[in-house]
Computed example of a mutant assay.
Amino acid sequence: MDHVSEGGGGRARDRDAEGRARNARPRDGLGRPLPYGAPGVERQPEGVVRSPRETVQEAQALLDAGRPFHAHEVFEDAWKSGPDGERELWRGLAQLAVGLTHAARGNATGGARLLRRGARAVEAWSAETGQDRPYDLDVTGLMAWARASAATVEGDPAPLDARACAPRLRGE
C-alpha cells in the first residue's frame, strides 16, 4: 500500500497508488484478515491478465496448496479481463473456489450455497456454448464435485480440509 487516508468514522483506510481502497492487512491461507504486522501468506496480485490456460494452471496450483481464496482471485481476474462470452465460466469457477473457502472456514451454509451457485453457472455456460472441456476444464466433473461437496458440508458442518478436498480442474 502506498498510503493511508481517513475513511468513514475517522478510521484510516489503506489505499493503493491510484487512491482505491485496498486492504493491506496480511491474510491467512483461507483469505481471513490477520492483524497488521502478523505473518501471512503472499497475496495474489490483482488485475493480472493471464491466458486461460495460465489461469487454470495458477488456480490449480493454489487449490492444491489449500488456498482456494487465492484461486478465486485468479479466476476473478479472468472473469473481469476475459471475453464477454466466457465471463459466466470464470465467474462460476470463482464461486466454486469461494464456496470451498467458506466450507474450509467452517461456514457450511455459505459454502454449500456458493458451491451450488458455481455449479449452476458453469453448467449454464456449458449448456449455452455446448462446450464441456474448454481449456481442458472438466466442467461435468467440477459440477459433480461441487454438488457432492455441498452435500458433504450440509451433512457435517465441520470445516473441510481445503487441500484434501480441492477439485481437479482438468479431471486429472
Rank of each mutant, 00 (worst) to 15 (best):
R50H: 07
W90S: 07
A124W: 05
L114K: 07
A71I: 02
V74D: 10
R117A: 15
S81L: 07
P159Q: 13
L100H: 02
E54G: 15
E73S: 01
R117L: 13
A146H: 11
R20F: 08
E6M: 14
P83Q: 15
A38F: 10
G82P: 14
A108V: 06
A144L: 14
A21I: 14
W145C: 07
T55L: 10
R168H: 14
G155F: 10
F69N: 11
A59D: 06
G19Y: 10
R117I: 07
G7L: 06
R32Y: 03
W125C: 01
A65R: 15
V41F: 05
R15Y: 01
R117Q: 14
R91L: 08
A65G: 02
S126G: 12
A65F: 04
A146V: 07
L142I: 10
P167M: 04
R87F: 00
A65T: 05
R163W: 00
A71W: 02
T129M: 02
R25F: 03
A112C: 04
L115N: 06
R43Q: 13
T152W: 03
A94T: 04
L100V: 06
Q44T: 14
F75Q: 03
L89Q: 12
H72K: 06
R13N: 05
R113Y: 07
L96M: 07
T109E: 13
A65I: 02
G171F: 09
A78Y: 07
A104N: 00
V56Y: 04
Q44G: 05
R163F: 05
T129D: 02
R20W: 09
R147C: 00
D156Y: 11
R53G: 09
R133W: 02
W145H: 13
G29Y: 12
R147L: 01
E154V: 10
R116T: 02
S5D: 08
W145N: 04
D77Q: 14
W125D: 00
F75M: 12
S51E: 00
Q95Y: 05
G10S: 04
L142V: 08
G19K: 13
R147G: 00
G40E: 00
W90Y: 07
R170A: 12
E73Q: 12
R11W: 12
T152G: 04
G130R: 15
A166V: 09
P68S: 08
D136H: 15
A150E: 00
N23A: 11
H3A: 13
G106Q: 08
L62K: 04
A97Q: 03
Q57V: 12
P33R: 09
R163L: 12
T129P: 01
A65N: 01
V122Y: 03
R120P: 00
T140Y: 08
A104S: 14
A12R: 13
D77R: 14
T101K: 07
G19L: 11
A104F: 04
V49W: 11
W79M: 09
A38W: 08
G106A: 04
G118Y: 05
E46P: 01
